[in-house]
Computed example of a mutant assay.
Amino acid sequence: METRFQILNGQRFHIRRWGSSDLPPLLMLHGFPEYGGAWADLAPHLASHFHCIAPDQRGYGQSWAPEGVGQYATSELVSDMIALVEGLDTPISVLGHDWGAAVAYGLAMFRPDLVGRLIIANGVHPVPFQRAMASGGPQSAASQYINALRAPDAATHFAANNFTRLESFFRHGMGLDWLSDARMEDYRTEWARPGRLNAMLNWYRASPLVVAKPGEPCTDLPRLPVERLMVRCPHLLLWGSDDKALLPEATDGLEDFAPDLTRVDIPGTDHWLHHQKPEAMAQAIIEWTDG
């Protein structure tokens, strides 16, 4: 692995890379509450096939973390990655997990000229996810934690006692064998950088997605431009079925937005499949790419 800083849209971003720069590029986009280093389990298994590029996204790690909720609208987050991808030989492959999936979908939907293949690992397209969260059913219940993350005092709450509450949130519903004490300290180091935790939480606050109360469906939803939210390139969805935050119903109807969709389950994993079964995940990606 090598690291460097790169200027994107006039701001400084921290980027990790694995594999020869002569290989096809694979942009790897992390989610909450991780950072670019979260791909260190998976990337070595892909580095013989791809030049893996893993930025700390806006507000995370050592990258630019502006103040203000509006700075974390999806359009702003996608614009950072457009600036990064435009410096590469395009179209490229893009891999997104969790919130990184939202940015990956944004790239594929709004700049299809830049994305040749889209890989999502336990992440969701905005339309099926909004429908599931608005239904008042199981996904609505599973998504109630979003309200706590959007609260004005969330950064203070989750940072208390050396991030004890954020660690508990992070550990909820995951296999713990990969999360050693040493790795947990690495996460705390990134969370403790000035302004970072509040910036990370601003991703949730800036999202227009509505979370219904369990048993109380929402019908007055913001209109999503469905006709513009198509994924035209080949799309691989990797899924850990034991995920407690994102349920299978959050991907119902995805085929309507991704006509060239392949679904692959990674047995024995939950939301953190890239840590739990990186070899199996890499094999699925390589087989799909080579197929």
Rank of each mutant, 00 (worst) to 15 (best):
H271M: 13
E86Y: 13
S180F: 05
L42I: 03
L118T: 03
L179D: 05
L229K: 08
A141G: 10
E287W: 11
G70F: 08
A212T: 08
W239Q: 10
L179R: 03
S207V: 02
Q144M: 11
S93Q: 12
P208Q: 07
E190S: 14
I82L: 14
M109F: 07
S168L: 13
T251L: 13
P33F: 02
I7T: 14
A212V: 10
H14A: 09
Y187S: 06
I119Q: 00
L236G: 04
P214N: 09
A73M: 05
D22Y: 13
L8M: 04
A192G: 10
P217L: 08
D220I: 09
G291M: 07
R228G: 06
D113R: 11
D177H: 14
F129L: 11
P248F: 09
V231S: 04
H30R: 08
K277N: 06
Q57I: 11
S207M: 04
E190P: 01
V226R: 15
G268P: 06
E287H: 15
T251C: 14
T262F: 06
A151R: 06
L77Y: 04
L95Q: 00
M200T: 05
M230N: 12
S20C: 05
A258T: 03
W178Q: 15
G240L: 01
R117Y: 01
S241D: 13
R117A: 07
R4K: 12
P194Y: 11
P138V: 12
S143W: 01
L238M: 07
M230G: 12
G291H: 12
G215T: 06
A148I: 05
D98V: 02
S75F: 03
F50N: 00
E190V: 03
D113T: 11
F50T: 02
S241N: 10
V69T: 12
P66A: 09
T3A: 15
H51I: 00
H97E: 08
P259Y: 11
A65S: 12
H172F: 14
F5K: 11
R232V: 12
L229Y: 05
A182P: 05
V226G: 09
C218P: 00
A101C: 02
A280T: 05
P217W: 07
V78C: 08
L221A: 05
P267H: 11
L197N: 01
L118Q: 03
I146D: 03
P234C: 10
P44M: 04
E249M: 14
G123L: 06
D242N: 09
R183S: 10
G240S: 09
D181S: 13
V264T: 14
R196L: 03
T164C: 08
A65Q: 11
L197V: 07
L261I: 09
H30M: 02
E2I: 13
F169Y: 15
M174I: 14
R131F: 00
H51C: 01
G291D: 14
F32P: 00
E216G: 12
G195K: 04
E86Q: 15
D265S: 13
M184C: 09
G240T: 08
L114D: 02
L26K: 02
Q139Y: 11
H125D: 02
Y145M: 06
G195W: 01
H30A: 08
D113I: 09
D270W: 05
Q6F: 02
V264E: 14
G123V: 01
A38M: 12
Q276V: 10
M1C: 09
E287C: 14
S135R: 10
W203Q: 03
